[in-house]
């Protein structure tokens, strides 16, 4: 039963279905009530479920996170929205010191089944503080799951999994992809958090991407095909836990890889992917793994962001660099 819908609509459906299925699921944050969130992801939830289940809080991100942790300690499954990636930073201490550690500190006696939804990353012409790729901060913190879908079907399925998870999940929603339409069957099961997926088969080299970089990788693969080069595209989907098996099997099958990510490259998830794959696939590699990432700069202003974001050309140049002459 496929339909054509946006990621925003799929996320809204996931929240609605989860709240219908489980009374302990509550949704709160800034402007998520009657307004439906600045991106309208929570549209209609207060109307359907009442303002005890979907509500606005005072403007205080640490407060939102801390209260969610307390509610989770006492039997609820809160989903919270941070209005934008860079506005989640005031909540960082609550995420890192409490959400991530509560299970561990208490040997599993207290758990924090919360979902931290974060409209994430750039490419939307946003002014400063509205376009950060903050995944590395969370991915570096043991105790958190970190997920970044790239299409409506995954957005729906992964958000349902995230809400059902007994662990805290940082759910990164690529803003750039919110309103892109795609065919999706929301009734089809999505594999659990922790599984990557091959988005496009290919035999010459593997592009590894997640979130907003996936469409860029797919476009690059399409362009490469015109030139007779067959690129495989892996969508990581779940940054933590990381699916070493799927990613490494893919790289072994081609012997060449490029990691594509929007975040600055230094100390990043893309660096981790290169390290992991190299440790496991060294003898299969015909060339060092290349990365196409954002530069190591604060996120640029709208008129300059196109210089910064991984582009199809930059990806193809990196692919060209994979020592084909030695093959």
């Amino acid at each position: 039963m496929t339909e054509k819908l946006t990621m925003a609509a799929a996320l809204n459906r996931a929240l609605r279905d989860a709240m219908r299925a489980d009374d302990t699921v509550v949704m709160f944050g800034e402007d998520v009530g009657p307004l439906g969130g600045v991106f309208r992801i929570t549209d209609g939830l207060t109307a359907e479920f009442g303002d005890q289940r979907c509500f606005d809080t005072p403007l205080a991100e640490s407060g939102i996170l801390g209260m969610a942790i307390g509610m989770a300690m006492n039997g609820m499954r809160p989903v919270v929205e941070m209005q934008f990636d860079a506005f989640a930073y005031p909540a960082f201490e609550q995420v890192v010191s409490h959400a991530a550690k509560m299970r561990n500190r208490t040997r599993g006696k207290l758990t924090v089944p919360i979902v931290i939804r974060i409209p994430y990353a750039g490419g939307i012409g946003g002014v400063e503080h509205h376009c950060d790729s903050s995944e590395a901060y969370y991915a570096h913190t043991p105790g958190l799951h970190v997920v970044a879908p790239s299409d409506p079907a995954d957005a729906y399925g992964l958000l349902r999994h995230a809400i059902a998870s007994d662990d805290p999940v940082v759910f990164l929603e690529p803003k750039k992809l919110y309103f892109a339409r795609a065919e999706a069957d929301l009734t089809a099961p999505v594999p659990p958090i922790g599984t990557a997926v091959i988005r496009r088969p290919g035999t010459d080299a593997t592009l590894i991407a997640y979130g907003p970089a996936v469409p860029v990788a797919l476009e690059a693969a399409e362009a490469a095909a015109q030139e007779g080069r067959s690129l495989q595209v892996v969508d990581v989907r779940s940054i933590v836990p990381f699916d070493d098996d799927t990613v490494c099997d893919a790289v072994r099958s081609t012997g060449r890889a490029v990691v594509v990510a929007e975040a600055a490259g230094f100390g990043s998830v893309s660096a981790e992917v290169v390290a992991r794959v190299t440790e496991r696939c060294f003898h299969w590699l015909h060339a060092p793994i290349r990365r196409v990432t954002g530069f190591d700069i604060p996120y640029p202003p709208p008129k300059l962001e196109h210089f910064h974001l991984p582009s199809v050309d930059r990806v193809l140049d990196a692919v060209d660099d994979l020592q084909w002459e030695d093959a």
């Binding site: 407060g63 996170l65 801390g66 209260m67 307390g70 006492n74």
Partner: peptide
Amino acid sequence: PLATHLLHAVGVAHAARLR
């Protein structure tokens, strides 16, 4: 971590109150 638990207290109390 100073004062961080005060928010958890609010959350626990709020959950109880909702029920």
